[in-house]
Design a protein around this nucleic acid. Sequence first.
DNA 1: TTAAAAAGTAACAAAGTCTGTTACAAATCA
DNA 2: TGATTTGTAACAGACTTTGTTACTTTTTAA
Lengths: 138, 138
Amino acid sequence: MQSCRFAFAVHVMAVLASGKSDCCPSSRLAQTVNTNPVVIRRLLIELQDAGLISTFRGPHGGAVLKRKPEKVTLREIHSAVDQGNVFGTHPNEPSQECPVGKRIGKVMLRIQNRANRALERELEKMTLADVLRELRKG
Amino acid sequence: MQSCRFAFAVHVMAVLASGKSDCCPSSRLAQTVNTNPVVIRRLLIELQDAGLISTFRGPHGGAVLKRKPEKVTLREIHSAVDQGNVFGTHPNEPSQECPVGKRIGKVMLRIQNRANRALERELEKMTLADVLRELRKG
DNA sequence: TTAAAAAGTAACAAAGTCTGTTACAAATCA
DNA sequence: TGATTTGTAACAGACTTTGTTACTTTTTAA
């Protein structure tokens, strides 16, 4: 299966950005995403490490955005929660006796890098503010 | 983990393209990729369905390219063996009571489509002939 | 006609990943 | 001091992926 962490993260960030409340606890985020609070907290840690949010403990604690939605790109959210490879590589080393097998690894790495960067470029074009606009449009 | 099918498929196509032999059996392909012949045969079926190769049974059977390497893009190879979503969506339906949860699905679909298309555009720029050139360069 | 070689296919095992869950420790506030 | 919330560890269940075995079907050639 594919990971849904990016979808969860965009959802969480959108809720925080449309925030009527200052601090949103993981329990509330979990309700709207429809998952377990621990799943959300694990996400929040990654978003926090990426500098996108802050979290606070204790009563009235929770998560808040550190930046305005216009200043948060989807690339930042993506790279915060998803390790960045679009597709996988050979799990076992190919035959070093075959001229293709001997060098395919390096070539695949270049292809991977180009694919990763293309994805990042596209995600860089979209901000959390764009997501909010789309949400309002319906 | 991520699927390595695309890497395997590019490897296989490169071997077929650099083909000293007309027909390459799955057993030989499996050797250079370093995996099991059945894994290769499953790939070959998908490449065949995509119109990129032909396979033949019986002695001296195996796989052959149907087109010249210059006419095969990496996008074609990719879409032949990888279902085309860069990242996953919510496994459980989000809360329909939350204004974000209610509409995030559609918005994520648009984001997904843009990401998928960006990846395809990049892979479309590279052909199997480019891969062969890179392999020779080292 | 028969034997050998190859793809096609089904069934299953093993490993890994991912989400979800429970439980508890640490921190914070009233 | 007690309530609330994050942080964190441990584990279960489901799913995906690769690899493996075994068998059928097709094809070639002796």
